[in-house]
């Protein structure tokens, strides 16, 4: 079978419309836009899916209600314990050492968490002194079991707004 056989197989792939390329094309003079008026102009007459023909649309007729926490939530950088232990060589884990290891930025809210898969059981392979914003219960237990300490600090003042979504 030659490449041509394959390329001549119908696939449902449609030919591109070529507008304004001559009478015979059927999309010649007005290019499928009819004649004159707003609809025939660039950018004309696209009023969006919630437009109801000029009648006050449903979403404006109904009262506003409800609350969404999205603007107020505190967002943490979630750092798996095993990765932190890998990347930070000393026994002090705080924002400075995490930043130096490229795992955090000075103004982000950091939470130490367990890992996935093989690392789901959080384990500390050495004693470390941890000072970060939040530590998950499992990781806290693991660090203390390995002889380390855990201190949770206040969130950065603008933590809620500056921490990135991940």
């Amino acid at each position: 079978m030659s490449l041509q056989d394959i390329l001549s197989t119908p696939t449902g792939r449609k030919d591109r419309k070529r507008v304004g390329r001559g009478l015979g094309s059927g999309l010649g003079k007005t290019g499928g836009r009819g004649s004159k008026g707003e609809g025939s102009r660039t950018g004309g007459k696209n009023r969006g899916p919630l437009f109801e023909g000029g009648q006050k649309p449903l979403w404006m007729r109904l009262p506003k209600r409800g609350f969404n926490n999205v603007n107020f939530a505190t967002r943490y950088i979630a750092l798996p314990l095993h990765r932190v232990l890998e990347r930070v060589t000393g026994d002090v884990i705080n924002l400075e050492t995490l930043t130096a290891a490229g795992l955090a930025k000075h103004d982000t809210a950091v939470k130490l968490v367990g890992g996935r898969g093989d690392h789901a059981e959080a384990k500390a392979n050495r004693a470390v002194n941890v000072t970060v914003h939040r530590v998950s219960a499992k990781v806290k237990a693991a660090i203390i079991a390995a002889g380390g300490t855990v201190t949770e600090t206040d969130l950065p003042s603008d933590g809620a707004s500056s921490a990135p979504t991940n």
């Binding site: 079978m1 056989d5 394959i6 197989t9 119908p10 696939t11 449902g12 792939r13």
Partner: peptide, 12 residues
């Protein structure tokens, strides 16, 4: 089977 239509898409 040899899926010609799929091969065409992949080739393009």
């Amino acid at each position: 089977e040899v899926r010609k239509a799929l091969l065409k898409e992949a080739y393009i």
